[in-house]
Structures are given as structure tokens and as C-alpha cells.
Design a protein around this nucleic acid. Structure first.
Length: 659
DNA sequence: GGGCCGAGCCAC
DNA sequence: AAACGTGGCTCGGCCC
């Protein structure tokens, strides 16, 4: 039995009979009599991990991988009889593997070629002839049945678009794997997952096989081999499910998994719905920012000319204003020496040239990231964009978004107003008020912080009043309140005195004093943050209010980066429960909203979500009702996740996405 | 001509 | 003694 001293990291091999790990055993190295925990040695990577843990936190392997032989076995449905046989069998199954084959990734542009349903014994393969019948089957919505899919979002989008049905209960083996190994690994493909749990080598990606098939010639292309592989993909799903389900129970992550499995349906619908773009307005914005950029360029070259230095100061070619190297070089010629040419550095230099370079960059960035290229992802027929959300994109549980990333649209009316409602409809924007700070209040149970939220006072003013010990009416907005606000928001990031000092323009020493004043008032927050950092470093993971876990790779003490990695884990350990619990909350809200809008048969649907915000498109007559539902659902999720702190969501009905 | 990476910057 | 958390996109610059 191995023990590790958390004070000095010495690992001891002690006899099995040693009593409770928490007992005051003295460490022979540092004499610490605390912090001893029993460790097991991993048979694969030989590292140590907590005895109570079900898997090695270093390599994440379990010792109970099974080896199995599995033979493809399928029924290709080609008659009324075989269809009846298949649906009878499916009606009897409680665990149903579910997969589809398509000739492309975009459900709005490409075809659903096959739908495969079955268990580990047999797969029933349905071609498009059967969709009209299949769509009427009631097993889809039967809550006794669990549909197992790998990356269900993909299959659900094609199913919804072609058959207009969605399964009631889903288990997504990709999401399950992400939950189980969050922060440790991103080996999420079916191939990797099958290898891990079944020691099975699944053949290559099926997409390439089906990619070129045109639906009219489907039958000519389908070979036994193709169908066998399509069948195997389904047959292994229930097997993987059983293994992962057990792991989820062991790691106490069933609750968070159930939430993610409910949410995946909502995300699939949201991606299909897309968001309407006023492309004309978008082009006008591009035009105006292009002119702004040109104006900055003109100013820059005027200054260059006026300085006596010509534009060929780079050996005959004109300076590339997009190159930070060349910008730095240029500034050197003007007697300005900088190490980095980023905006924070440039913002401290008072020089007209620098001013216009910053101006140029600003518009160049907007034109590049939010220019013509963005319009390419707009679907011409409908003038809508259909971005791709990664449901657990960040290790904290947050969504990430691509093609295009709707979570980084500039928060200005100029850009946001391009995301509008089509004619005769409305946009509802609803966001949580200070979501992360309220979550921190809930996590830390700080009585003063919670009271401020219960009293509904201005949080930053009230914290300023307390930390500077002055009445609220004496709090200066640009001084005390600003400092309090900066500290409040910095808490969730593990921000230190140096960075705080730079932001509010005081010395590091002064910043340190202010943080001390702050923590003197909010000692529970101080304690919680410290404990969260320590827990992450010691246990190797953080947890959210719904027990979502994020694992950390703890380096060996011999790692030259050991100290810096460990403090990084400390900061992430502070941030992850806050950010992650906020994620739990908004995902729960998304599920509630989707259910309520449907239950009330409203012509309204979710079109976007950005961390603490949900955007819904609605018909005009339903808008008020929908907005009320959105707000209520968000607040209900707040009460569920953080019951000890009031959660406020603010809804706005308008013609476009507001901020 | 494509892949990769860091710099820089957009969001919350 | 420090050290601001989570992403995606585009570009320059370098490599093969």
C-alpha cells in the first residue's frame, strides 16, 4: 500500500495493515503529521492514484477492459414483412443502438441514406423508402427506451430534418467519454472509445464510404461489406454504453451526464434552426469599417511621409501593417522601443503613429474576422447561419462554437443588430445578471455576499462600501466602485495583485492591500477560493454544483515546470467550479426552455446561446409568452443549481439580438 | 501548396 | 516571488 505525503510529496510503501489514511502518521521526510492518503499503484503507467478512485488519474485506464469477439449481423429492411419483424424486435428492446449514414455533414444540404437501429445481437437497417413509416413509430418517444448513439447531435439533426422525430431518451457515448475524461483526454472518436472499452478495432470512418453515394443510386452502391460495417457500428454501442454507464455511476457523474444527454437534443434543434442574418446590413458594416481602415492607413502614411522616412524603409517594399514584427521595426525608427507589439503595450504609448496603428488594427481585425468570409457561411436560400456547437467544448463544460463562432460576435449594436428576426417575427434575448458572481456566492456561502444579492443592492457599490468602510453614498464610482468591481470580476480568474494593480493603475503593493481589505470582509470567499485551489491540486479534479468534474494532469515533482503548472491548476481550480456550475445552470435552462416552448405549442425556438445568455426567435403573437418562459426557465435552473442565492435573468423582446 | 504554431484579438 | 479563467479565427512566418 502506498502513501503519499501531501506536504513534501514523498511516497512511502507501507504494509497493508496500516490503518486509516487520515490518521496522524508522521512523514519521515518532513515530519508533517497531516495529509497522508492511501494510494494505489497503476499497473499500466506505474503512477500513484487515490485508492478510492475507480481509475488511474494519470493514464485514466481501468483494469477491467474486456476482450470480445463480435460478428456483424444485420437485417436490411426490404419488405413489409421484414419491416414488421424489425419494429416488433425494436419494440421489445430497451437499449437501442442508433446510427445513421449520410453522404455529407450538413443535414440541410446532404441526404440521410440509412437509419440503423439495433442491439449487440442484430442491427436493422432502414433505407429512405421506410422513413415515412419509421417516422410514425412510437418507440422514438417511449421513455422506457434508451437510444445509444456516438455523437448523437449529428444523427439527431439528420433524423429530425428527414423524419421529424427525436428519440425521448438518449445516451451519447461521445459525450459520456468527454464527461468521464474531461481535462485528461480528447480521444473521443468511436474508434478510440471502442478500443478503450472493448479492446476492439473498429474499421475506418464510414463517412468516406458513403460520401459519394447519390441517393438515387443507393442500392447499387450498397455492398455486404458496407452494410456489415454499418451494422457493427451499432452493435458495439450498447456494449460501450454498459461500460461507460458503470463508470459514470462510479465517478458519480450520472446527474451531469443525464443533463448533457437531454441538452444534446436541444443543441441539435438549435443548429438546425440557425439564426437569420441581415446580409445587406452586414455588408454596410463591412463597407463603413473598410472606410475607417482606409482613413487610418492614410494617416499612417501621412505621418511616415512627414517624418522624412519613406515607405520603402523596409528595403523597397511597403510596410505590412499586419505584421507585428514590421510594426515593431517601424516604431524603432521613430525612437519607440517595445518588446511586444500587442494592444496593451501600444495603448501606453502616446504617439500619433501608434494611435493610428491601433486604429488600423481594430478595423482590420473586424474586417477579417467579421467580413466577407462570415457571409460565406450564410445559407443563401434562407439567409440563416447554422453554426456548429461543441457541447462540452471547454474543459469547464462550456460550449464552444465554430463555423462561424457566434460566441465572439462584437458586442456592439452595429454587429449584433445584423442578427435579427425575419419579417413578422421577434428576437428574445435573455441573460443572467452577474451569473458567475452569484454562483461564487452560492459555492462559498459567504453570508455578506448572499445578503447583498438578497437585498438586491448594487453589488459593486456595496462591496466598495464594505471594503473601504465608507457609507454607500460616499462610494466614488470611478474610484472605490471601480476597484471593487475589478476585484469582484477578477476573483473567478484567480487574479493576483500584480494584474489587479495594472488594471486599476496602482502599485502591486497597494493592490495587495486592497485585496486584503476585500477578503477581510468576505472571508468565506477567501476560504472557498483557497480550498478550491488546494482541492484541485490534491485530488486532481474540480467539481461543480451538479458534480461535473474536470480532471487535471498533475505533473511529477521532478517536472521542471512543476511549480508553475501547480499554480495554474490552483487558478483553474478556483475558476472551474464557478464557470462550470454556471454551465450546469444554463444547460439546464436550455432543456427547460425547449420543453416549455413545445409544451405550450409556441411558435418560438432557441437560436443561440453565449455562456450566460439565451437567444430565442418567436412569432410576434407568441413573443411575450415566450419571453416569460425563457426568463422563468433560466431562473428556475438558477434555483436548482444555486438554491441559496437569488438568480435573476433579464429578458428583452426586440427586432434583433441585443447585448 | 499545405500543415503547424504563435501572436493578436473577438467573446463571456 | 510570481502567474487572469474559457474558447475560436485569422494572419504571418516557418517548415516540408
Amino acid at each position: 500500500m502506498y502513501f503519499t505525503c501531501f506536504n513534501c510529496d514523498l511516497t512511502l510503501d507501507l504494509p497493508e495493515s496500516t490503518n486509516s489514511p487520515r490518521e496522524a502518521t508522521t512523514c519521515p521526510s518532513c515530519n508533517s503529521d497531516l495529509h497522508l492518503e492511501i494510494y494505489k499503484k497503476c499497473p499500466y503507467c506505474k503512477s500513484f492514484y487515490l485508492k478510492s478512485s475507480s481509475r488511474c488519474l494519470n493514464c485514466f485506464r481501468t483494469t477491467d477492459c474486456l476482450s470480445l469477439q463480435i460478428q456483424p449481423n444485420y437485417n436490411y429492411i426490404d419488405s413489409k414483412d421484414s419491416y414488421a419483424q424489425a419494429t416488433n424486435a425494436l419494440n421489445e428492446m430497451n437499449i437501442i443502438g442508433f446510427d445513421v449514414e449520410t453522404n455529407g455533414l450538413d443535414p440541410l444540404e446532404k441526404d440521410l441514406l440509412l437509419v440503423q437501429l439495433g442491439d449487440e445481437e442484430k442491427t436493422y437497417i432502414f433505407d429512405p423508402d421506410w422513413y415515412p413509416f419509421l417516422s410514425k413509430e412510437e418507440f422514438w418517444s417511449n421513455n422506457q427506451k434508451l437510444f445509444i448513439a456516438h455523437n448523437a447531435k449529428f444523427d439527431l439533426k439528420f433524423l429530425k430534418h428527414n423524419l421529424d422525430v427525436l428519440p425521448g431518451k438518449i445516451f451519447d457515448t461521445l459525450l459520456a467519454e468527454r464527461i468521464l475524461t474531461c481535462g485528461f483526454s480528447r480521444k473521443l472518436s468511436l474508434k478510440e472509445v471502442a478500443k478503450k472499452y472493448l479492446k476492439l478495432n473498429v474499421k475506418k470512418d464510414r463517412r468516406k464510404d458513403f460520401g459519394n453515394i447519390r441517393i438515387a443510386y443507393l442500392h447499387e452502391y450498397l455492398s455486404n461489406e458496407l452494410l456489415e460495417y454499418a451494422s457493427l457500428d451499432v452493435q458495439i454501442l450498447p456494449l460501450i454504453y454498459r461500460k461507460q454507464n458503470e463508470q459514470l455511476l462510479q465517478q458519480d457523474e450520472m446527474k451531469i451526464a443525464s443533463l448533457e444527454f437531454e441538452a444534446v437534443k436541444v443543441i441539435a434543434k438549435m443548429e438546425l434552426a440557425g439564426i437569420y442574418i441581415d446580409t445587406l446590413k452586414w455588408q454596410q458594416v463591412i463597407q463603413s469599417n473598410f472606410q475607417n481602415k482606409q482613413a487610418a492607413v492614410k494617416k499612417i502614411f501621412q505621418i511616415l511621409k512627414g517624418s522624412g522616412l519613406s515607405t520603402d524603409l523596409f528595403g523597397g517594399y511597403i510596410i505590412n501593417l499586419n505584421s507585428s514584427i514590421e510594426i515593431r521595426e517601424l516604431l524603432t525608427r521613430f525612437g519607440i522601443h517595445i518588446e511586444r507589439a500587442d494592444d496593451t503595450t501600444l495603448s501606453q504609448i502616446k504617439h500619433p503613429l501608434v494611435k493610428y496603428v491601433r486604429e488600423y488594427r481594430k478595423y482590420e481585425k473586424l474586417l477579417n474576422s467579421f467580413g466577407d468570409k462570415f457571409l460565406q457561411s450564410v445559407r443563401k436560400q434562407t439567409s440563416r447561419v447554422h453554426p456548429s456547437f461543441q457541447q462540452i467544448g471547454a474543459d469547464t463544460g462550456r460550449f464552444s462554437c465554430t463555423s462561424p463562432n457566434l460566441q465572439q460576435i462584437p458586442a456592439t449594436e452595429e454587429y449584433r443588430s445584423c442578427f435579427r428576426s425575419p419579417k413578422g417575427r421577434k428576437i428574445i434575448t435573455c441573460d443572467y445578471s452577474q451569473q458567475e458572481l452569484r454562483v461564487l456566492a452560492s459555492l462559498s456561502r459567504d453570508p455578506k455576499f448572499i445578503k447583498m444579492y438578497k437585498d438586491g443592492v448594487d453589488l459593486h457599490t456595496a462591496t466598495a462600501s464594505m471594503m473601504f468602510d465608507i457609507p454607500e453614498e460616499k462610494v466614488e464610482k470611478e474610484n472605490h466602485r471601480k476597484i471593487a468591481k475589478t476585484i469582484n470580476f477578477g476573483l473567478a480568474y484567480g487574479r493576483g495583485p500584480k494584474s489587479l494593480g495594472i488594471t486599476i493603475g496602482v502599485s502591486e503593493e497597494q493592490a495587495k492591500t486592497m485585496i486584503e481589505k476585500y477578503f477581510k470582509q468576505f472571508s468565506h470567499i477567501k476560504n472557498w477560493l483557497e480550498q478550491a485551489a488546494l482541492a484541485a491540486q490534491r485530488k486532481g479534479y474540480s467539481v461543480t454544483l451538479l458534480n461535473r468534474k474536470r480532471y487535471y494532469k498533475i505533473p511529477p515533482k521532478s517536472d521542471p515546470e512543476y511549480r508553475s503548472i501547480l499554480s495554474s491548476i490552483g487558478r483553474r481550480g478556483k475558476n472551474s467550479p464557478i464557470q462550470g456550475s454556471s454551465v450546469d445552470m444554463i444547460k439546464m435552462a436550455l432543456v427547460y426552455i425547449d420543453k416549455q416552448l413545445e409544451a405550450n405549442k409556441l411558435d418560438a425556438f432557441i437560436i443561440n446561446t453565449v455562456h450566460d445568455e439565451i437567444v430565442v426567435e418567436s412569432s410576434i403573437p407568441d413573443a411575450k409568452k415566450a419571453a416569460k418562459i425563457v426568463q422563468e426557465c433560466m431562473e428556475r435552473a438558477g434555483r436548482n443549481i444555486a438554491p441559496n442565492v437569488p438568480t435573476i435573468a433579464e429578458a428583452n423582446i426586440g427586432d434583433y439580438w441585443t447585448h
